[in-house]
Design a protein around this nucleic acid. Structure first.
Lengths: 335, 335
DNA sequence: AACCGAAATGTAATCCATTACATGAATGAC
DNA sequence: GTCATTCATGTAATGGATTACATTTCGGTT
C-alpha cells in the first residue's frame, strides 16, 4: 500500500509538504502543490486513517445507541445519521440495546473507552437518566428524539407536547367530546409530553379529563399491546368516540381491536397515530397521524454532534424540528 | 489517557509483556500475568485501537452497502450484521445506496480505499455484477441475500427457487389450477430464481405456463407497484384464482387491488407473499408468506466475512439458510 | 562441569501521518 | 550592506501497540 513517503518521493518534496497539501494547513507554493497533487493522483493515494487518528488523537467513530434497529422510526433516523456522518468522515458504530430501556451507564462508559469514540448519539434514553450529565464534559453526546429532562445536554426532537395538543385539538374541533389516549408505560419524555399535550387540549376545549379515557400500553409499542389498551378503553361503560395514540403501531392495534368490537373507523371511532411511518398509507383506512421528520432528526443530531465535538462556539443545546399533523382516513366529524 | 507504558510501569514489567498478556500470544508466568491484569484493572486501561490497527495493518471496519436502510427486510439484516460485528470487534460503516440498483464499481473501490475497510457486505447486487470478481482476491467481500450468478464469490441467502416452488406447489395442492405470479422487473437473482421456482411448481403439477398469468411490478417493491401489477393480471380475460408474489409489500398491494375489484381474499383469490416482514400479521387477513430468516442472514454474512478476512481454510462460498413457508389467512382451498 | 534448549521477559524497530522546530531563501527597512 | 522578518520547505519527534530479535535464567543431559 502506498504511503506518504512514496508520494513525497514521487513529487520530489518532503512528507511534511505532502501532509500540508492534504490538510491545507500552511501555504504551499502553487507549483509544489501541483506536483504533490499529481503524485497523489498517480498513486491514488489515500492517507492511512489509523495513523492519522493515532496522531490526532481522535477515532472518527461515533457511537449510536438505538433500542431497536428494525423499528421503522429508528431505521429512518439511523438513515439520516449515517448519511451525514459519512459526509463528515465518521464511521458509525451502531449498538442495538434491544429495547432495554435502561440506557446502561456502565455500557456507555465502556463503549466510549473501548472505541475511543469521538461522540455518541442516543436514540432513546429515559427522561430521568440524569447520570448522563456527568459525562457531558468528557464526551460529546447528543440525544435524539428522547432526552433527559431538565438537563443542559444537547438534544434534538419535535415538540411532542404541542403536536399532541394540536392533534387532540383537532379531534375536539371535530365535535368529539370524549377523547381517549393510548400512551405507553415507558419512561420516555415523549410519552410524558404527549400526555401533557393531550391534557392541554382537553383543558383548552373545556373537556374533563377522566381516568377511564386513559390507557397505558406495554412499553414495547407493539401492535398487540395497542390492541390490549384499546380493549380496556373501548369496553368501558362510556367509551370515547376518538382515541389519540402515541405511536402509529399502537394506533393500528387500536383500529384492529375496534374492528373486532364491531366499531367502524372512522365512522364510530376516530383514531390518531404518531410518527407517520411508511405503512400508515399501505392499507385503508389511511392513518391520520403526526408526521415526525425522522430522517431530518437523524441528520440534525449528527450535525449537532459534530458541532459539539469540535466545540463550535454557540452550538445549540435544544433543537426542535417542525412536525405536521396529517388528517387522513381514520379521523372524522363526530356523528 | 493511560497507555501501555503506564500499565507496564505500574506492573513493573515491559510493554511487550503487557501486550502479550492482552493478546495471549505467548506464555507469561501466572504471577506476572496477575500483576499486569491488576495494573490494567487499576487504570481501566483499554488499548488504543488506532495504534493497534496501524501496527496490524487492519482497520477493523467493515463496509455495508445497502439499497435502503428503512426497508424492514434490510433493517433486520443490518441488525444481525451489527450484532455480530460488534462482538467480533468491528465497526460497521453503513452506506446507503438509495435503491440505485447498480452497485457502482467505482464507489466500491473508493470506499475500500478511503476507509481501508477489512471487508464488505453487499445487500443487493445485480445478478450480472460480474466485475465484483476482479476484487475478490484483493478485498474480502460477502454478498448477502442477492449475489452475482455463476461466480466463486462468498454469498449467503435462502434457496429462493425452492421456496417459491414450495409455495406454488401448496397453491396447486389446494386445488388452484390457474396460478399467477407478481415478480419485479429488477435484476436481482432472487427474482429470477423465484420465477424459476414458480415454473418448476407449475410443471410439477402439470399446469401450463401462460403469459397472462405473469406480471412484473416496478423494481421498487412498492405497495403501489403491487397494485398496478395485480390490476393487469386480475382484469385479464381468464384471471388466476391464486397469485404468488415475490415480496410481502407487493402482496399487500395485490390484496388491496383485489379488494377494489370486488374480490375477497382468500375466498375468491389466494395470495402468497415473500419475506415475512413484521406487518404481515399486523392486520387481517394475515399474510401467507415465505419466512426468510433476515436476522440470521445478517449474522451469517458477517460470520462468513470474518472467516474470509482471516482466510480461514475451508471458509464456505455459498451458504443457504432454511426458509419456511407459513400459511396464514390469505390462502385457501380453491372453491 | 560444561553445554543445550526452552521459557520468560526485555529492547528496540516498526506501522504512517502530523507537526514542532529548524533551515534557508527572499524581501524590505534603515 | 546588514539585520529582521516572512515564506516555503525540510528534519525529526511523536502518538501507542505489536513483534522480531536479544537476553537472561533455569532445568536437564552427558
Amino acid at each position: 500500500m502506498v504511503n506518504i513517503q512514496d508520494v513525497a518521493q514521487e513529487a520530489g518534496v518532503s512528507v511534511a509538504t505532502v501532509s500540508r497539501v492534504i490538510n491545507g494547513t500552511r501555504c504551499v507554493l502553487p507549483e509544489t502543490e501541483a506536483k504533490v497533487r499529481a503524485a497523489i493522483a498517480k498513486f491514488a493515494y489515500q492517507p492511512n486513517l489509523s495513523a492519522r487518528n493515532l496522531r490526532k488523537n481522535e477515532s472518527r467513530i461515533i457511537l449510536i445507541l438505538t433500542p431497536n434497529f428494525s423499528n421503522p422510526y429508528y431505521s429512518k433516523v439511523l438513515s439520516g445519521i449515517c448519511d451525514v456522518s459519512r459526509n463528515l468522515g465518521y464511521s458509525t458504530l451502531i449498538y442495538n440495546t434491544y429495547d432495554s430501556n435502561a440506557l446502561d451507564e456502565k455500557l456507555v462508559v465502556s463503549l466510549f473507552q473501548k472505541n475511543r469514540a469521538d461522540g455518541m448519539i442516543t436514540l432513546a434514553c429515559n427522561r430521568d437518566d440524569r447520570w448522563l450529565e456527568k459525562y457531558a464534559g468528557r464526551y460529546a453526546i447528543v440525544q435524539c428524539s428522547e432526552y433527559a429532562e431538565e438537563m443542559e445536554l444537547p438534544h434534538i426532537s419535535v415538540d411532542n407536547r404541542l403536536a399532541a395538543r394540536e392533534s387532540v385539538r383537532h379531534l375536539a374541533a371535530s365535535g368529539h367530546r370524549r377523547i381517549g389516549i393510548v400512551s405507553s408505560s415507558n419512561s420516555y419524555l415523549s410519552s410524558a409530553n404527549r400526555m401533557r399535550g393531550y391534557q392541554d387540549a382537553l383543558e383548552e376545549a373545556g373537556l374533563p379529563g377522566e381516568a377511564a379515557l386513559v390507557a397505558y400500553a406495554a412499553p414495547d409499542y407493539s401492535f398487540s399491546s395497542g390492541k390490549q389498551a384499546a380493549r380496556t378503553i373501548l369496553t368501558s361503560p362510556n367509551p370515547p368516540s376518538a382515541i389519540f395514540c402515541v405511536s402509529d403501531i399502537l394506533a393500528l392495534g387500536v383500529i384492529a381491536e375496534a374492528g373486532k368490537l364491531g366499531l367502524r373507523v372512522p365512522e364510530d371511532l376516530s383514531v390518531m397515530g404518531f410518527d407517520d411511518v411508511d405503512y400508515t398509507t399501505m392499507f385503508h383506512p389511511y392513518l391520520s397521524t403526526v408526521a415526525v421528520p425522522c430522517y431530518e432528526l437523524g441528520r440534525g443530531s449528527m450535525e449537532l454532534l459534530y458541532d459539539h465535538i469540535n466545540r463550535k462556539p454557540g452550538a445549540e443545546i435544544g433543537v426542535y424540528l417542525p412536525h405536521q399533523v396529517v388528517y387522513r382516513e381514520t379521523t372524522a366529524q363526530k356523528r
